[in-house]
Design a protein around this nucleic acid. Structure first.
Lengths: 235, 235
DNA sequence: TCAAATTCGAAATAGTATTTCGAATTTGTA
DNA sequence: TACAAATTCGAAATACTATTTCGAATTTGA
């Protein structure tokens, strides 16, 4: 107990931040290459150049590392998404841009997408909802909630079919695109050899069909209304 | 070295089959409840009532068990699929039936779908392509290859838009539906609390939009009728 | 320069999958 | 029913995991 003031736990924030980065960067690279499950803590420590005992000072478990990386990824995506949509003139164009960005993402960063796929399949279910939601809320408010407004706009200006339930459609379409995207990333080159097309092209076709399905086509106003009645009753 | 004939390895096939079943049934139940990764070999042995040493006589690893269960699941699905499509009169109706069956499946056996999702995310990439393909071929020949023919038919009879590439579209649509289905199964009840709809309903909406996107809207009146006909029949 | 913060080393714990092997039991059949 | 081969049991051993512990050594910022 010296006469000096005792410094609180995180006293060297700059240094701690640097260390944290070293660990996360090493882990991310390993996850990309070997998958979350295929990566051991020993590999992360040796790749990042810190001892296990030190690493556990920063992350209390492997899961915490996964979580941290996921958070950063989602924040990135969100930035890119809101950025890209700025240029698009009207609602349908914005929706198109948003969805096609997911195909670009698959084309450019298949490992990252695969990481998210692994998260969904292995971790999402066991982790507390609140934590998931707090993460999702980093990406939601803009692109997602926004997306259902875009659908509303599209219906109003006649570019989208009038029988769409904006909220339901938004979730359904987003989920289909995200699901397709992540599945393609998981199966990777296996799909290419079997399907004979680059994975991102497959995803682009899915998106095209989905967009066509949302669009208002000629006079199907009648058909549309009819459908929506039937639908609502059956659901 | 008796004078009797030495019996080959699998000499009590009925007994072996019974044992195999005990193990697979126990494992399947555990996988459903705790996930593939959350299930330990120790749990499987104690649940199935055989010793580890015995179990490894039947399956050389946990992966082999996963693999065996996957194979049985796919065979089941295939049977159900071909069965259900028999009733459908024309191509568009068959496609509709096939896709909606995947929503039913999600509604009825979410654990099984989740199992497949985990397989995709964790195992698919690391296992040899040949093995994957030999499995897929159990489900492919009928529903899948068939599916692209259905699209061809649909284009010919005017019910589907003429600018579709049958093979590409088939893979794109199937992948979107499967991807959406498995993602929903992975996220489970989390989606419901957040989205406010039962998961299978979300999937049904994705399917509806995809089907609309494939349909021909060139001749409005016909398109309208065709749509509503299909709808009514499919419900 | 110095006290506190941080890291290192190295060993310990506990939980995995998988293997080994001789003794005990079960199986189908002669 | 008896028997030889097939199968199972038990129990311990191996080799990985993640995670913890703690005292000694080093680094940090004022």
């Amino acid at each position: 107990m010296g006469s000096r003031v005792q410094k609180p736990k995180g006293s060297y924030p700059a240094h701690r931040e640097r260390q944290r980065r070293r660990i996360l960067d090493a882990a991310e690279k390993l996850f990309d290459g070997r998958g979350i499950d295929g990566t051991t803590m020993a590999e992360i420590t040796s790749a990042s150049g810190v001892q296990p005992s030190t690493m556990y000072q920063y992350f209390s478990s492997k899961d915490e590392i996964v979580w941290a990386i996921l958070g950063e990824l989602m924040q990135e995506k969100r930035g890119i998404a809101t950025e890209a949509m700025k240029d698009a003139p009207h609602s349908l164009a914005r929706i198109t841009v948003l969805l096609e960005m997911m195909a670009d993402d698959l084309e450019r960063n298949p490992e990252k997408v695969r990481f998210m796929a692994q998260f969904d399949a292995i971790y999402a279910r066991d982790w507390p909802v609140e934590r998931l939601l707090s993460l999702e809320s980093q990406i939601h408010p803009e692109p997602f909630r926004f997306f259902s407004e875009l659908i509303r706009d599209g219906i109003a200006d006649g570019s989208l079919r009038p029988d769409l339930d904006p909220d339901l459609t938004m979730h359904a379409v987003m989920n289909a695109v995200i699901g397709a995207q992540r599945r393609l990333a998981s199966l990777g080159s296996k799909v290419e050899t079997e399907y004979g097309n680059p994975v991102d092209q497959l995803l682009r076709e899915s998106i095209r069909v989905l967009l066509l399905g949302m669009q208002n086509s000629g006079t199907p106003a009648e058909a549309g209304t009819r459908i929506s009645k039937t639908r609502k009753r059956s659901l």
